[in-house]
Computed example of a mutant assay.
Amino acid sequence: MLKRRHGSILKRHGSDKRRRGSSSSSSLSVELELLPHDVIELILERLPVESLRRFRSVSKKWISTIDSPRFQSRQLNLRRQSRGHDLLFVAYYEDPPDNVAQHALGSSSSCIYRTVKFPFPNVLLCYGSCDGLVCFFCIHTPNVVVNPATRWHRSFPFSSLQRRIIDKGPPFGSNPIYELGFGKDKLSGTYKPVWLYNSSEFGLDNVTTCEVFDFSTHSWRNLVASSPYPILRFQKPVYFDGSLYWLTDCVETKVLSFDLHTETFQVICKAPFADDAPLPSNVVLFILDDCLCASEKTWPTQVIWSLDSSSKTWKQMCSIDLTNTFPLFDRCGLMPLPVAILEKNKLYLHGRNYLEPLMLHDLNTKSFEVVSTPTTPGDCIYYFESLCSV
């Protein structure tokens, strides 16, 4: 009976919202107040973030419920199960209007985007999102973690790596290029930005240097035991299931993992690439369909593999004929980055050079469709709306 009742309330709320806009929130809150609070929680968990932000104003009890980590975790998990992920497009500007960054949020099914502004200038983006949080970094401005759905954000200071690059001064393009990683310790629930870079390029003695940011102390710390292998530059560390992943820069390319709980490195397997020493611009790690994946471009083909986490073996997911995407994607530049896969056969690809489009590739028919073309340079990532913060 209760299930039918709160199901009808949710259905009615959805139709009312389309008819009357935000006024439906107050009517729904009145209806919910008539129910036991544990039932109210079950209903609230199934609502979108935008509605929950408004419902925080109902009462102190509702604020306490919506702001609790347990509720936020359940709401995020239910959204993942019922809706799946969206695509988040982050637009970059050389000279941001009003000194703000713009982030366009859109559904991967409808591709209808709205713009969200934050009070900090544009910066570079870590790979993907973690529990609805995205992390930005730059040499010119402080690093920041953002929840685009709630507008919450928190900045954190430069690492030693960033300070070294700043001290060397411009041109910044002459410095070795590394990317910041961002993920979550699944056991403690803490989020961690991580830098990993080859030490010799900065006059240091170890093979690599690893810096981890601690939000509780608001400071960076160096790990004593870092990776025993140098890593490929120009790659974004990929977060998946409690670990960050890189590709190593050695004779035989390997996949390197960093457990965010134990803070230890481990080589988990050899990369599936045919070449022993691939060009960094031709290989990439990413997440598709809840699997760690790798891709290599050998013109005119881009091959995608997925990793079996139990056996640590690779299987080929698909092969893309890049001649079908040229000239929409730069033939001589970076290969398109797989962003998300839907319905097991709909693969979203996003160009990595300036204004290249977001495309939908049907793995069964091998057809391509332009979904949207950005009007400004930016990155497209998979994304889940959440209430989470650090």
Rank of each mutant, 00 (worst) to 15 (best):
K297T: 02
T217K: 09
K236L: 10
V267P: 05
L232Q: 14
C210M: 15
W305G: 10
V267K: 03
A271D: 13
N198P: 03
F215C: 10
D205R: 08
V238F: 03
W195N: 07
S199Q: 01
L288V: 07
E252G: 13
S219L: 08
T208Y: 06
C293K: 11
S306V: 14
Y245G: 06
Y191A: 09
Q235N: 10
Q266F: 11
L256H: 05
P237F: 03
K270H: 08
L247C: 08
D308R: 12
C250V: 14
V283P: 03
S199W: 00
R233L: 06
F215L: 09
W305Q: 12
L307T: 03
I304F: 09
Y245L: 04
F240R: 02
L232E: 01
S306R: 11
S199L: 00
L307D: 01
F258D: 03
W195K: 09
V283C: 06
Q302L: 15
F202M: 01
D241N: 13
D205T: 10
C210F: 13
F265I: 03
Q266W: 08
F240A: 08
V238M: 01
T262V: 15
S227R: 14
S243F: 09
A294F: 05
V194K: 02
T209R: 15
P237W: 05
S257R: 14
N222M: 13
N198R: 03
L256A: 08
N282D: 07
N198F: 01
T253A: 10
F265H: 05
T301F: 14
D290C: 07
T209E: 10
D275E: 15
L223P: 13
G242C: 08
S199Y: 00
Y239R: 12
S306H: 12
S219K: 10
C291G: 05
F240W: 13
V303I: 05
N198S: 08
S200L: 05
K192I: 06
I304A: 09
A277V: 07
V212C: 12
